[in-house]
């Protein structure tokens, strides 16, 4: 693979984490415009762990996931009382709060003669662990793919057990779900925590590939894209949001034909899919047909 292909595939992989994160909340019946905040939390905490504290990479990823999951649960605790538009606005507000906080967050230490760490709006550079360890871009792509595989595996495990059924049921009708004896509160907090952890995992991987991050990268548009990926790709399977990322980054951004028109084409595509297939290309009826076909 040439360098360009590897970088496109890496980007697809990284955005897939964010898309799956937003997709999980869509399944649970919530529209979140704020998953980029957890991506940022993962990027910053993972970066601080390896660049400032000089921890090993794996430890940085673990702390990022743990922090993302913890903050996700903490934010869900008050916001799960909200639904629909109110929830969407609350998540948007939280994400902007996070970005604004990172704009003034400075935490620098002297590492080998250089001041290293987040420096407010100037960003956070020198997250060099991957390069110092001599990991080639191709090998890092394999790491991204492995982590993504683990996330997909986790969701598959949840579909095999009861986890996904719980999420879908609560998402479809929370009142009825409670009447079936399911704790809506606990389910929603668990979903938000899972979504936060997955986005943070993507963020930590992103920070180490980019080596430089700044608050402006985690803007509302990033979150809107993450949400749109699931809506385009479909809510019937975890492959839906990944399909969405493939369409946007794989086709629209990477093919030169669309050059300056990418956002216009993407926006039009979102509108079209929402009209023709409100629950995305790979929606639940499609997946039921696929499953029935596989069983034969």
């Amino acid at each position: 693979m040439d360098g360009y292909t590897i970088s496109v595939l890496s980007n697809i992989g990284l955005f897939a984490f964010l898309a799956i994160s937003a997709w999980i909340l869509l399944i649970a019946g919530e529209i979140s415009f704020g998953q980029q905040a957890y991506f940022a939390i993962g990027a910053y905490s993972g970066g601080i762990a390896t660049a400032v504290w000089q921890w090993p990479f794996a430890a940085g990823v673990v702390i990022a996931v743990a922090l993302g999951a913890a903050v996700g649960a903490l934010v869900a605790w008050p916001t799960m009382r909200l639904s629909g538009l109110h929830y969407a606005i609350a998540t948007l507000a939280f994400a902007e709060l996070t970005r604004a906080s990172l704009n003034v967050f400075t935490y620098r230490r002297d590492i080998e003669g250089f001041a290293t760490g987040p420096d407010g709006a100037n960003g956070f550079g020198d997250i060099r662990w991957v390069y110092e360890a001599g990991i080639e871009p191709g090998a890092y792509l394999a790491i991204i793919a492995g982590c993504l595989g683990a996330v997909i595996g986790l969701v598959a495990l949840m579909s095999y057990g009861r986890g996904m059924a719980r999420l879908r049921i609560v998402g479809e009708d929370p009142i009825l779900a409670a009447m079936q004896g399911l704790s809506v509160t606990r389910t929603k907090i668990a979903a938000a925590s899972l979504a936060g952890g997955i986005a943070a995992l993507g963020g930590a991987l992103y920070a180490h590939l980019a080596t430089y991050i700044e608050p402006a990268q985690f803007s509302v548009m990033t979150g809107v894209h993450a949400l749109a990926y699931g809506l385009i790709g479909g809510l019937g399977t975890v492959l839906g949001p990944i399909l969405g990322v493939l369409i946007d980054i794989g086709l629209l951004e990477s093919l030169r034909v669309f050059a300056g028109y990418r956002m216009i084409v993407f926006g039009g595509l979102v509108v079209l899919v929402l009209i023709v297939r409100p629950r995305g290309l790979l929606d639940e009826p499609t997946m039921r047909r696929v499953q029935a076909w596989l069983r034969r």
Binding site: L157, S159, Y160, G161, R162, G163, A165, Q180, G181, L182
Partner: peptide
Amino acid sequence: WVAQNGHEQRRAHFLPRWFKA
């Protein structure tokens, strides 16, 4: 199935019956 099993999760003390789809 959902109605039958939803409330039983309360009684599953430690591990929910994950692998019983």
